[in-house]
Write a protein that binds this DNA or RNA. Sequence first.
DNA 1: TCCCAAATCTTACGAATTGTAACAAGCGGT
DNA 2: ACCGCTTGTTACAATTCGTAAGATTTGGGA
Lengths: 233, 233
Amino acid sequence: MTAPLVTILDDEPAIRTMLADALNEAGFRTMTFGRATEFEAALRSTTPDVCLVDLSLPDRDGLSLVHRLALEQGATVIIISGRAQVQDRVTGLELGADDYIIKPFDPAEVVARIRARLRRGTPSPQSGETARFNGWVAHFDRYILEDETAAETPFSHAEGEVLRLFLERPKRLISRQTMQEALGGAASESFDRAMDVRISRLRTKLREDPKNPRLIKTIYGAGYIFLGDVVWG
Amino acid sequence: MTAPLVTILDDEPAIRTMLADALNEAGFRTMTFGRATEFEAALRSTTPDVCLVDLSLPDRDGLSLVHRLALEQGATVIIISGRAQVQDRVTGLELGADDYIIKPFDPAEVVARIRARLRRGTPSPQSGETARFNGWVAHFDRYILEDETAAETPFSHAEGEVLRLFLERPKRLISRQTMQEALGGAASESFDRAMDVRISRLRTKLREDPKNPRLIKTIYGAGYIFLGDVVWG
DNA sequence: TCCCAAATCTTACGAATTGTAACAAGCGGT
DNA sequence: ACCGCTTGTTACAATTCGTAAGATTTGGGA
């Protein structure tokens, strides 16, 4: 568990050292750059956990750099800028920045904001065609569930909807209401055991022990939680 | 693929409607609350994607609410506050908030910041899942209590709420009052043996000797004290 | 020490919620 | 039309959890 690496890209040396000092003090590793080209060169051999980027760079348009970093590389980007207009902040964030800090700033806040980003862990896999979880592989393109012995169990469309919902929000409470909406959407109000039946059938295919389900937990009066460790792809 | 749900908790109606309008305009679903108790009640049946919380609430300390939301429920929390000191922002972020926006704010920026959070995907609660104490391991993610022989005893949601409360404040008096509020939040009203029953059932699962409880001790006329040596993680 | 009222514990019961087997309707293929 | 599969509906079983009420404990006063 090495310390997270934070890169600092700013053309003012004073700001670079101020940030680097504060971050080192807080237990991070740091790398500083005065020009975008240096920074980009370094990116080829390192993957920072968080990139601090000043928008006013001499050699390159900061925003397009942010865009590339965030969208193409999936990096966590925090903009530091002297431009304080709301519109600047909005466009910065929309181009993919994770946060936008205005100069002058307090290093303590920068540290706190970096920590807040890191707490959430890095990127998030988005849903695709297959997902692995706890020995199972779900193939949504083939409507097949595969166990660790490669035995295949087909699942239906309705079951797949429920399963996908669970796999997209693992370890979070999914309320009955949101599940209703996500599925048929038709709010047939109180008389809807349909959802329960779908879940029951899915549980059977996942070979859940009715007395002690390990993957799909019921929270009485609230909803369900899917407890698998999901990896999409 | 329903629109993300954003909850707004603020005691000023003008701000609530301003935010709700902007967010609806931007394509989000919204729910607004003027008091923390209402909000907490709603949380039992819904899981918002992002929670906007104003720190200056009439009926509860906003920071502790943020802490609970962020750490225990793993929710994405954005603080909106009139307190502009750096120290306020740092503590807010350190307590688990994902962002901190200062009043007065521009709704467009709020929208942009919410989008930035959602882009990263909604995280699942990572920390605060298990706690060890006196030979037991409580798995809050699985709703299971494990003894030293690895035998598993499931516990219900209501029991888990009580257990979590104890494990968070070990060796400190927890008054009946605070326990009531921490649990259902339901008004202290008149007859509330419900809490006693929850505790009784929890004691049974922890195999407490009724004559001589070692973990959950009753302080006559005051409340309870949990005596275990708790290690979280 | 003994007694009593308040506080707390426990047990039983029931309303609400959830699980699931069985049946029926719908749909596509033969 | 028949068959097999999917999926909703219904009916009933199982679970959760609060309420009620009697049992037990506590602490103070006689």
